[in-house]
Design a protein around this nucleic acid. Structure first.
Lengths: 130, 130
DNA sequence: ACTTGACCTAGAGTATGCTCTAAGTCTTAA
DNA sequence: TTAAGACTTAGAGCATACTCTAGGTCAAGT
């Protein structure tokens, strides 16, 4: 029920540098420090890190994530903004999924093309850029 | 059957700066220049730009894309490497899709949570980081 | 003739997100 | 008591991918 920065780094795959950087940028405003000045991460802080990863991976920059956290701290007067942000993010993810599917199709085509080419020992160049 | 850099910028959404940067980095080795020294993009060059976008969007850095282009230029002796690269890329895309689905689930949960919170006028905080 | 606008090169500058260094503190085990 | 190892801060440095600037060329329209 309390983790050091090193333990969190191992758990999350982030470096201790990155964790401190996130805190400096205001992304982890709930972390406590003990009497010796050491950070003590709670399970809730791990939850915040998961959310940060989710928003980052879906295309929000750290600034946007900080905006969300600032809204969260501000309290119930920002509920609508936060809802809108997640709705916006959902649209982005849907677009990303569609894009990714298109890219997958292209890659599958290339795999077919090159599988045949490896068999033949040669690639017929006019097919490459089709 | 021949586009200026400005036309290509409009078509692709990339800036003319970016297009010149890509060429400088060796990503567009097939572009011709006319007698006045102006770039003339062919349809095949547009095809290359599409491929670059596909590889970039699926997580390959420009260096990795350049590697592929260098293999392409090298010819049939690199067919296997190119096939392997696309297979590797396919694995990445599959991972990305799975990740994106997880993120989507989290975002959908947040949308439910905040939709209710907006109705209630308040967010019950213990739910936020669950 | 001359202005406008699109192009050119070389190279500097910028945004983002880390990543590392220096100098120091604190705890623990030999 | 001392050395190791994990932590601290402040701030510098770095990689990637642009993005822009300066100074110049060239073609077309008025």
């Amino acid at each position: 029920m309390g983790y050091t920065i090193g333990q969190v780094a191992k758990k999350t795959g982030l470096s201790v540098h990155t964790l401190r950087y996130y805190e400096k940028e205001g992304l982890l405003p709930f972390i406590k420090k003990n009497s010796a000045g050491l950070r003590v991460f709670s399970d809730s802080d791990l939850g915040w890190l998961e959310l940060i990863e989710c928003l980052k991976a879906t295309g929000l920059h750290l600034k946007g994530i900080k905006q969300y956290i600032d809204w969260y701290i501000e309290g119930d007067s920002t509920l609508q903004q936060r809802l809108d942000m997640f709705k916006q993010q959902k649209i982005r993810v849907e677009q990303q999924m569609a894009e990714l599917q298109k890219h997958m199709n292209k890659i599958n085509y290339k795999i077919e093309l090159y599988t045949q080419a490896v068999k033949d020992g040669t690639l017929h160049p006019e097919k490459e850029t089709a």
